[in-house]
């Protein structure tokens, strides 16, 4: 009797395991995120920690700093009031969508472009930043724009899960694309000569160029990459609140202040164009 019971428990556990692994499990994101966040007085954001100007870990105080992080703090304050807390979880381009779908985070604000493919799995707020894809190359590189990359034998570096990797495959189909884990790894790989150029959105690249005088951004922007806050499907009230917050920030000048704070001193970058 006892043995049979043990066997039954085991089989149930095994079945449950298979169920999880095959992804048949029910999504957690059925609850109303906005209500939960109001109750907890906290919004949990997924942010980058390796991307200068947007979300970069400051080694001195272990805080993530950047435009995305500040936007998240302001949006939180607009939605929850002055005492609302923003909690940050570090994500990569690869991990952000699974974490959102799983409910580990309430929203993604991590240099994420609004694209039709992604809109099939998540909902986006209105755009909160207008980026465009560009190239980072070493000073003295012969590469002037994206068409210079379209040769067999050229290697371009990108990041797993980034939209820019899909784009470059369209713009330079002959180039080989290497996808690294995150921007810190991709940049170090560029320095190590693992590729001739690193491609992603101009804002991120300018951030890298500021830190690394041996490198420059070339070729202008060859795509439009509007960044949006991603939330789970079916969270309309939350999305609406985010949109309202962005609009309020644009109206009262908070938005332009943040743009100036983060992009005002970036050489080669006209922050006035970004102001709204």
């Amino acid at each position: 009797m006892k043995k049979q019971f043990r066997l039954a428990t085991l089989l149930v556990a095994l079945g449950a395991l298979m169920l999880t692994l095959s992804g048949c499990g029910k999504s957690l994101s059925q609850q109303d995120v906005l209500q939960n966040d109001r109750k907890a007085n906290t919004i949990t954001w997924g942010v980058k920690a390796d991307t200068k100007l947007f979300g970069l870990m400051d080694v001195r105080d272990n805080q993530i700093k950047g435009f995305d992080v500040d936007m998240a703090k302001h949006i939180t304050r607009h939605i929850l009031g002055k005492k609302g807390k923003a909690k940050f979880i570090q994500v990569t381009s690869q991990s952000r969508i699974p974490l959102l779908k799983n409910g580990n985070i309430d929203a993604i604000i991590a240099t994420m472009t609004i694209t039709p493919q992604r809109e099939k799995v998540v909902s986006f707020s209105n755009s909160y930043f207008d980026a465009g894809q560009s190239l980072l190359v070493p000073n003295g590189s012969k590469i002037k724009n994206v068409s210079d990359l379209n040769k067999s034998g050229t290697t371009v570096l990108g990041v797993v899960g980034a939209n820019s990797v899909q784009n470059i495959k369209k713009f330079a189909p002959k180039a080989r694309v290497l996808e690294l884990q995150d921007y810190a790894q991709a940049l170090t790989s560029l320095k190590a000569g693992q590729g001739v150029a690193l491609t992603t959105d101009n804002g991120i690249l300018y951030g890298m160029a500021v830190q690394n005088p041996g490198f420059k951004v070339v070729g202008g922007t060859f795509t439009r990459e509007p960044y949006g806050v991603a939330v789970n499907k079916g969270q309309k009230p939350f999305t609406n609140e985010v949109n309202k917050a962005i609009k309020e920030m644009e109206a009262d000048g908070e938005y332009n202040q943040l743009i100036k704070k983060w992009f005002g001193n970036v050489p080669g970058f006209n922050y006035k164009e970004l102001e709204r």
Binding site: T20, S22, G23, I97, V160, G161, E179
Partner: peptide, 16 residues
């Protein structure tokens, strides 16, 4: 697997 997961957004099945 990482690349397939990030194109299809079907993380679990890609890794399965």
């Amino acid at each position: 697997a990482n690349n397939i997961a990030s194109i299809t957004f079907d993380t679990i099945n890609s890794y399965m």
